[in-house]
Design a protein around this nucleic acid. Structure first.
Length: 445
RNA sequence: CGGAGCGUAGCGCAGCCUGGUAGCGCGCUGGUUUUGGGUACCAGAGGUCGCGAGUUCGAAUCUCGCCGCUCCGACCA
């Protein structure tokens, strides 16, 4: 993408309403625009990252054997009357009436609807296990939206629903989700710690939240220092191997890690003192096993091998997709701007032309741009007539992990400069070498 | 929803107390200059002063009502 033809409305000054760093940077980097309290338009740069995150979520869900579908944002109230939640949910649920005076709502979640789909089409244990998920906009009419996309009213969420015959099967689905979430966050360059959580209004007894450590997090968290160091890495996972999946969950949850809601001071004290950590975290996902709460209420049953009819065992599992943008920036920034992890960056690399209009630098930049494209890497090429300082400041702000700087001085010696956004380290090399290096960095992506 | 504020140009703000033809910085447009970290100068464009009533010869400014937004708290993915 050539910056001269892109739409990147960056701001030099901080908008007054943004209090936390991720909100400020998303506004300044031209990623979002607020349209109402807690409701945002996603401008091209923000939209690219959002889609990238969605893509990673889809890929990891597919790997775990989960099946995508798409349910609507608007739902009929009747489904929610069946489960009893229409009255329970309260003011957070946005209620709408259509022209025929039917009660509708903008979905804050989809348990009722997915249960309706299930009961209509699944009759036998032979069709289990089944996990269906979608990535769809939700609305919760928060009393006080804040922190930009971290606590908006409208938000994009991946929510998945598992259906199993037995409790044991359902717990495997739960574990499978935990492992797939660990992979998902790791690919994004995040350390998200599963923490035992309180069940909240959805109900159920087995639940973990995934928290990204950040000073601006909304929850206080207590954990063993060894937990954030745990990595899934590139080990091979067979999601059908119950023992292996359970062992990974055990590895990631046996050490102490809890939010303030479930914190147990006595247990915490048992950790050696030097490993006791207290911090704050941003919740970016949650998994629940809740059994037959909805299937019983809504008559979602299957026939067992014995010919009996039993309510299906369910769980629901969410990832806050739009919220992840905020969490990623909270965890990856410095005083000059965002620092995207390679996994989620909107563009893999930026090209800065220091002397737009100079035949040699223009040609070198065009060459780099084409060579990167040939390797499947879409660079953001700053081809505007502007000062070097302004171009650097823009690149630093929007946070592309790598930058190739092309100027007459370097070209005279046959080199361009490759700079790492995170470390600030620069290295001079030929244009060909720079392309090769960037391609290598992104080879696994 | 309790408490506290704020709505004046795309962004950040002054002007309001003490009513008299709407300003500053950044950004934007044209030009000159400059060219390896937000350059300098010149000339411009851009505003229903959130909305509606009222007081007044005259309202951004005073009064009343409404709307929107932000912050702290309670609540939440």
């Amino acid at each position: 993408m050539r910056l001269s033809r892109y739409f990147l409305p960056v701001l030099k000054e901080n908008p007054a309403e943004a209090q936390i760093v991720s909100h400020r940077l998303m506004l300044r980097a031209g990623m979002i625009r607020q349209q109402a309290a807690g409701i945002y338009s996603w401008l091209p740069l923000g939209y690219r990252v959002l889609r990238r995150i969605e893509q990673i979520v889809h890929e990891e869900q597919a790997r775990a054997g989960h099946i995508p579908l798409l349910m609507p944002t608007l739902q009929p109230a009747d489904l929610w009357r069946e489960s009893g939640r229409y009255d329970d949910y309260g003011q957070e649920m946005l209620r709408i009436r259509d022209r025929h005076d039917r009660d509708m709502l903008y979905g804050p979640t989809n348990e009722e609807m997915i249960t309706d789909i299930f009961r209509a089409h699944v009759e036998s244990y032979k069709q289990l296990p089944l996990t269906l998920y979608h990535i769809q906009w939700k609305f919760r009419d928060e009393i006080r939206p804040r922190f930009g996309v971290m606590r908006g009213r409208e938000f994009l969420m991946k929510d998945g629903y598992s259906f199993d015959l037995t409790r044991e099967d359902a717990l495997h689905a739960y574990n499978r989700h935990m492992v797939s979430y660990l992979r998902t966050y790791e690919r994004m360059g995040l350390t998200a710690i599963p923490m035992r959580a309180a069940s909240g209004p959805i109900g159920g007894d087995n639940t973990h939240e995934f928290l990204v450590l950040a000073e601006t997090g909304e929850s206080e968290v207590f954990y063993d220092a060894r937990v954030p160091a745990l990595k899934l890495g590139d080990r091979a996972v067979d999601y059908d191997d119950r023992a292996q999946v359970a062992a990974i969950c055990e590895e990631f949850t046996s050490l102490y890690a809890r939010t303030d809601e479930t914190h147990d001071a006595a247990l915490f004290e048992q950790i050696p003192e030097e490993r006791r950590c207290i911090g704050r975290g941003i919740e970016v996902g949650q998994i629940f096993y809740f059994g037959t709460k909805y299937s019983e209420a809504m008559g979602a049953t299957v026939v067992t091998p014995d010919g009996a009819r039993v309510p299906v065992e369910m769980g629901s599992h969410g990832i806050g997709v739009s919220r992840l943008l905020g969490a990623l920036i909270e965890a990856n920034h410095d005083d000059r701007g965002i620092i995207w992890p390679e996994g989620v960056t909107p563009f893999p690399v930026g090209i800065v032309n220091l002397k737009q209009g100079d035949a040699a630098t223009d040609a070198a930049c065009e060459g780099l741009y084409a060579a990167l494209a040939a390797r499947g890497l879409e660079a953001l090429y700053d081809d505007r007539e502007d000062r070097a300082g302004a171009k650097f400041a823009t690149m630093d702000l929007i946070g592309l992990p790598w930058r190739i700087t092309v100027g007459p001085r370097g070209l005279a010696n046959g080199v361009v400069e490759l700079t790492c956004r995170r470390t600030g380290e620069s290295e001079e090399m030929s244009a060909e070498a720079a392309v090769a290096r960037v391609a290598e960095i992104y080879a696994g992506r």
